[in-house]
Design a protein around this nucleic acid. Structure first.
Lengths: 278, 278
DNA sequence: AACGATTTGTTCGTATGTATC
DNA sequence: TGATACATACGAACAAATCGT
């Protein structure tokens, strides 16, 4: 009936972390020390630590040790202010400044490819039509924060928006650029939000642990005044350092002084809910 | 220099699954068979399988074996149609019907508690003030789909909205009920979206594997015409069966015939991105 | 209902590799 | 260079769940 050994040890360690016995930064005994403390084998200790990693409480570093993670102040990004008309890319810079952080955007890696089925469907073009792909890495205060890839119909370039294929940031925003160059007005967009485990590239760029971490996937299809898609944008946010906000109607301004916002706690609800289970 | 053994074995197995050598449902050789196939120890095989579990490709069942997961058709929920004024709870039922699925909502578990710091902050009341908590389990086609908990100021009840503390579903929607009873008009809301690893209760309710699964956390604070918060809602969506949509401005209708929508692929972007890495 | 065979889950012990200081 | 600490890998044993007989 008792939970397995590594799980009980993990719970005990979580308790010790929560109670502040190990604080942020360095800390946590080495595996060998924990073996002696808990009289368990090294594999069992390692299984317990894997659970802590999965909870996002600690990380390990070969040759150094196991450390309690600093809770990173998450970056709040508002996807939707109905009144503001910025593109998501501009919103990113705007909000970073608002929160007193330094947003950096890498020069884009630009590719021209043939649209696969999904891209063709999203952009309303034919499979095999050429598309411009712009991929950017975005950082905040030097830390990797999100990965963005956008797809545009190649037709935009041939019609005059040549800067789309320059490997240079379009500072005024692509939405603005397309309006000025081609008269295309962005009248709306649909966002899709999902979440999953990071793939190998994402784990490496964001420096995410092998297990237990998650990324938020944000796809946006923006539409022009003729109802046709303008672009497809895919953004990857590591969940441990991002919060996405959506505002509809009239809402009071958001203050960034408070840490966490509303019910961001992992265990509070569970405790309540568990209490009512048979 | 080469990737570790268990990782190479995992990649090989992923390839075999993708190529359809093992299809949905039963399948995958037993650990002992894989030991022989790959000439590796059982622990190494098990480490490889853990990666597959983390990718959401397979699940294990003690005494039975390892099985390829059926990919579930995700449920698409639109959080934001600026024009439509429904509450998120009503939207859930509405969209389920739209997609030809049967949405069930459990009778709520109702509690009265003192507001902790976060709830008090969200509802704009004092810490320790009493709040009504309504917790509901929601299913689609019989499968557990989301968990919702809402907090209301107790003052609403004393002012006449007694049904808030009834352990019965408010079918017309709480927003409508509060308008009729108290004249409170919902004029806007702010959503916060994050993602994390499920806690024990969530994992058990949604029947999620121990490792590698993720839930989307959706917090909504709704505001009334006086600019004060009406309610705080916390919804948990298992990421493997949910897609959240946000619509802003004018967008063409979404069709549900296509599987996956736009760029829902895990590896496509990674492959592209990896190609450009040193 | 009981039993045995099969399969995954847990735990131990040990050895070697690799990163860090 | 050596010491330390985590990462990988092997082998072995028993527990617990499942299923067919």
């Amino acid at each position: 009936m008792a939970a397995p050994r590594f799980r009980r040890i993990a719970e005990e360690l979580i308790r010790r972390i929560d109670q502040g016995e190990f604080s942020e930064g360095e800390q946590l005994p080495t595996e060998v020390e924990l073996m002696n403390e808990y009289n368990a084998s090294r594999n069992t200790i390692r299984d317990a630590i894997k659970l802590l990693i999965g909870r996002g409480l600690v990380y390990t570093s070969p040759g150094r040790g196991t450390f309690v993670l600093k809770s990173v102040e998450p970056f709040a990004l508002t996807l939707t202010s109905v009144n503001r008309e910025t593109s998501e890319s501009e919103a990113y810079r705007f909000e970073a400044k608002l929160q007193g952080r330094k947003a950096e955007v890498s020069d884009p890696r630009v590719e021209i490819q043939k649209a696969d089925k999904l891209v063709a469907w999203a952009l309303g073009i034919n499979e095999g039509d050429r598309v411009v792909i712009r991929h950017q890495e975005r950082r905040i205060d030097g830390r990797p924060w999100s990965l963005q890839t956008s797809w545009y119909p190649m037709a935009f370039v041939t019609k005059g928006a040549e800067r789309l294929i320059d490997a240079e940031d379009i500072v005024e925003g692509v939405v603005t650029y397309l309006r000025e160059k081609l008269g295309i007005e962005q009248v709306g967009y649909r966002d899709k939000i999902t979440a999953r485990v990071p793939n190998a590239y994402e784990a490496s760029f964001f420096n995410l642990p092998d297990s237990g971490s998650t990324v938020i996937v944000h796809d946006r299809i923006a539409y022009g005044q003729d109802g046709k898609p303008i672009r497809l944008t895919n953004t990857i946010y590591p969940a441990d350092r991002n919060e996405l906000y959506i505002e509809v109607g009239e809402v009071p301004p958001l203050h960034f002084s408070k840490r966490g916002g509303a019910t961001g706690n992992d265990e509070g609800d569970a405790a309540r809910a568990d209490g009512a289970r048979p």
